[in-house]
């Protein structure tokens, strides 16, 4: 048997047939993203910090809609509400809409290259942030400054990296000819 050769950390080529995702890998990545959201930050870190959970959630909603959908997004949103001490249901609603948007645009988004996907991901992340904004403004919060959109843009910039990293374990080992 040929030794398994790991593929490089690059986007999968179109002709590659991806392996099935390991079921424990999805919760694990979401958990790590959740920890990322709990990281303490201050100053510019707080302005720039993207919503890692939304980003990873979006990836799985786009790529594995049979495992991750509106319901699981909603549950993760509830956890995020406790972690952030925001009102119950705020992130839940935003993530549920994000998951729905991902499902709605799935066949279109995945046809593009990673950077072209990133532009569409930016819109989806802004939709998610927009729902939080509406909930808070209806609840009486003041309008935030323009930096409110920055995390969504940073998240979109990270999209190619996140995609490549999350896809990597599913790529088939290289055939002997490719080594």
């Amino acid at each position: 048997m040929a030794m398994r050769k790991v593929p490089p950390l690059t986007p999968a080529r179109p002709e590659e047939i991806l392996l099935a995702v390991r079921p424990w890998f999805i919760p694990l990545t979401l958990f790590v993203a959740f920890l990322g959201n709990l990281l303490p930050a201050s100053g510019s870190g707080q302005v720039l910090r993207p919503d890692f959970v939304a980003l990873v959630l979006l990836y799985w909603c786009l790529h594995e809609p049979r495992y991750v959908g509106v319901g699981s997004a909603w549950m993760i949103g509830l956890l995020m509400d406790v972690g952030d001490a925001t009102q119950f249901g705020q992130h839940a609603l935003a993530y549920a809409v994000l998951a729905f948007g991902a499902d709605f645009f799935r066949r279109r988004v995945l046809r593009f290259s990673l950077w072209q996907q990133a532009a569409q991901v930016a819109l989806l992340l802004m939709l998610c942030a927009g729902i939080v904004l509406v909930i808070r403004v209806v609840g009486g919060a003041p309008l935030p400054r323009w930096t409110y959109v920055v995390p969504s843009l940073v998240g979109a910039l990270l999209w190619p990296l996140v995609s490549v990293m999350l896809q990597w374990p599913q790529r088939p080992p290289l055939s002997p000819a490719e080594r």
Partner: peptide, 21 residues
């Protein structure tokens, strides 16, 4: 369908938001 799920969880979120605030 995803839309039915969204409607269900959306309503649930709004109920939760009210109950909490």
């Amino acid at each position: 369908s995803p839309f039915a799920r969204l409607a269900f969880f959306g309503l649930l979120s709004i109920v939760l938001l009210f109950a909490d605030t």
